[in-house]
Design a protein around this nucleic acid. Structure first.
Lengths: 341, 341
DNA sequence: TTGTAGGCGTTATCAT
DNA sequence: ATGATAACGCCTACAA
C-alpha cells in the first residue's frame, strides 16, 4: 500500500507526532535538525499525506461541490473556470455535478456531496425555489451560495448580475435606433434570470411609452432550437416587428437561423439581440449585439463568498450583484423609415 | 455535529455493526425486523453515511480525477459530460482539474488527486510525453487512462479517435472537389492529435500525387487567433491556394475571419475546413465542413476502461480507437476552373 | 442473528 | 523538543 506517516516515522527514528508536525509546518516544537531529517526521509520514501484520513479527524476535506445544469451549455464553462481557479487559490478542489435542471438529480448530488463531506457547495441549478434541497438532514447545514439564481426565500448568499438593468440597457439601445415593434423571446418564466430580463424589457418599453404587444412575446428554454421555433411562430403570426430581443445568445442564434431561412436580412430587415456574450456570439453572422455578463468573475466571487462562509464569517451583504455591460456589434441597425423604402 | 452510525445504533438498540450491515445492504445476517427498525431510525434521524470515514477503511473513495487543459475550450465540455454521466452510472463522482497545458499545474493536480485517494484518473492534458507525472511515488500506481492523447510510451490504456483517417477523409473530399493548392494550418506539433492529423493531410495529398508546398503549411495552437494569424501569413505570402484545411474548428473560424477581412469569399474564392465538429461549427457563416469526433463517447469509453482498471481487470486492448466522420456543410466548394473565370 | 473490538492514517492533547 | 495515545466514523473479521 501507500507509504504512511508511520513508515516515515520509523525510518526517521521519530514519532508519528513529530512527522505530522513537520508535514503540517507547525512552526513550533520541532528542531531544525529533525525537521530536515524528516523531510528528507519523507521525500526519499515518496510520502504524501492521505487527505481522507486527515479529513476524518479535521472534519475538513478542502473539496467544494459545484452544481450546475449542464456544462455543455456554453454559458457555464467560464463559471466553472472562475470557480476552479479561485477555489484552487484557496487550496480547494471541485467536484462537478451536472443536473440537467432535474431536481431529482440535484437532490441526489447534494446528498452525495454531503456524504463526501465537502466543505461547501455552489449551486447554479434549480433547487426548487428555496433551500429545502439542502436540508436533507435538518441538523447539519452545509455552507453554500447561490450563483446566478436569485431565490425568493433563502438564507444563503447569492451572486448574480442585474438582469433588469442589463436587459433595460439593450432594449433602450434598440429603441434609440428607432425601433418600436420589438419582439421578445423569453427564457423559462420560473427561472429568475429569465424573469429579471423580462422585467427589464418591459421597463424599457414602458419608459419609452411603447405599447407591449403580447403576440410578439414568446417563451423558450434558453436553447438554440427554442429561439428558432419562437422566431418562426412570431414570423408566422403575421405581426409586424422590426427587432427581436432574445433572453440569451443561444436563442438569438436560433432566431437568426429562422430569420435567414425566410430570407429576412439582419440587421437590414430585422435587428436581433442576445444576452450573455458567450464566445459564439462574436462569431455569428452578423456578429451579435448583446449584454456581457462577467461570467468568470461570478464564479470567482461565489467562491470568495463561500470561503468566508466556511471560515465562519457572517456575511453582511447577502447579495452580490454585478453590473452587466452592453456590447454593441452588428446585429442591430436603425429602423427603416417609410420614406426610405 | 453530524449524526453518526453510533447515534443510530443507540437509538435503535442495536450495535453499530448491525447498523453498518443494514446501511450497506449486506443481505445476510440481519433480521427483517431489525433492518426495518434501523432503517426507520436512520431516516428519522436524517442519518447519511460519512464517505470520508468509509473511504479510510475501504481504501476507496468513489471519486475520479479528470484532468484537462481548459474547460473553456469548446472541445471539452462534451468530454466532461460523457465522463461525468458514465462515472455517475458506476457510482463515481468527478474532481475537475484545469491545467492550461502547464505540466507544473498538472503535476500539482496529480499530487492532490492522489492525496485525495481518488480511485482513478482520466487525463487529457500534456503530462510530458510519458507517464512520469503519475509516478510521483514509484510505490503506488493509480489506475488511469489517457484520453485523446496518444502517447508513445505508456502502459496505461488510451482512448482516441483516428486522426490520420479523419483528416485523410476530409482532404480527400476537398481534392475530389478539384482543389490542388491546399493550405494547412496545423495544431502544435508536439501534440499527438496534431501530428496525426498532419499525417492524414500528407497521406491524402501524396495519394493524389499532389506536391506539398511548405509555404502553405503553418502551425498554430488550436485557438481562434492562431487560425487568424496563420491565415493572414499565408495570404500575405502571396502563394496561391484554393482551399485551407485547419487542424481544428476553432482555427478554421479564425481563418474564416481572416479571409473575410480580406474580402475573400467562402467557399466561392477559397474553401475552408475544420476538425472536431464542436457546436459552433454549424453556426458559423458559412457552416463549416468538418470532421466529427464522437467526443461524448470518448468520455464514456474512457470511464468504462478506467472502471475496469479499478476493478483489477487486465485490459487486453490498450488502445480504443474510434472512427471520426466527415460532416459536409457549406464551407467547401468546387474549385473554380480557368474557363469559368 | 447480533455484538465486540481492531484498525484505516491523521491530528491533537496530553505528558515527558 | 518529542512521544504516547485517544479520537474521527466506519467496516469487518471473529465471537457469541
Amino acid at each position: 500500500m501507500s507509504i504512511t506517516i508511520k513508515d516515515v516515522a520509523r525510518r526517521a527514528n521519530v514519532s508519528i507526532a513529530t512527522v505530522s508536525r513537520v508535514i503540517n509546518n507547525k512552526s513550533d516544537g520541532v528542531s531544525d535538525e529533525t525537521r530536515k531529517e524528516v523531510l528528507k526521509v519523507a521525500s526519499d520514501l515518496g510520502y504524501y499525506p492521505n487527505r481522507v484520513a486527515r479529513g476524518l479527524v479535521t472534519n475538513k476535506t478542502n473539496i467544494l461541490g459545484l452544481i450546475l445544469p449542464d456544462i455543455t451549455n456554453p454559458f457555464f464553462p467560464s463559471i466553472v473556470r472562475g470557480v476552479e481557479d479561485t477555489a484552487n487559490k484557496y487550496g480547494y478542489n471541485i467536484i462537478l455535478c451536472n443536473t440537467d435542471n432535474s431536481s431529482e438529480k440535484e437532490k441526489t448530488y447534494i446528498k452525495i456531496l454531503k456524504e463526501n463531506k465537502v466543505d461547501g457547495i455552489i449551486c447554479t441549478s434549480v433547487a426548487g425555489s428555496n433551500d429545502d434541497s439542502f436540508k436533507l438532514s435538518p441538523n447539519d447545514k452545509i455552507p453554500f451560495v447561490w450563483l446566478d439564481r436569485n431565490l425568493r426565500e433563502t438564507k444563503a448568499p447569492m451572486v448574480y448580475t442585474d438582469g433588469v438593468y442589463g436587459m433595460c440597457q439593450i432594449v433602450d439601445y434598440i429603441i434609440k435606433q428607432g425601433h418600436k415593434k420589438i419582439a421578445y423571446i423569453s427564457g423559462p418564466k420560473l427561472n429568475f434570470s429569465a424573469e429579471q430580463r423580462f422585467k427589464g424589457y418591459l421597463k424599457a418599453i414602458n419608459e419609452a411609452e411603447i405599447d407591449v404587444n403580447n403576440d410578439l412575446i414568446k417563451e423558450g428554454n434558453y436553447q438554440i432550437q427554442d429561439g428558432n421555433k419562437c422566431m418562426m411562430d412570431i414570423i408566422e403570426s403575421g405581426e409586424e416587428f422590426t427587432a427581436v430581443v432574445c433572453a440569451n445568445d443561444l436563442m438569438a442564434i436560433g432566431a437568426i437561423e429562422a430569420l435567414k431561412s425566410r430570407g429576412i436580412r439582419i440587421p437590414y430587415d430585422v435587428s436581433v439581440t442576445g444576452y450573455d456574450d458567450i464566445t459564439i456570439s462574436s462569431i455569428t453572422y452578423p456578429k451579435l449585439t448583446t449584454v456581457a455578463q462577467p461570467i468568470y468573475e461570478m464564479g470567482c466571487l461565489a467562491v470568495d463568498l463561500l470561503i468566508k462562509l466556511i471560515g465562519g464569517e457572517t456575511i453582511e451583504k447577502k447579495e452580490v450583484v454585478l453590473k452587466p455591460e452592453l456590447v454593441i456589434r452588428e446585429s442591430v441597425g436603425r429602423v427603416k423609415r417609410n420614406w426610405e423604402i
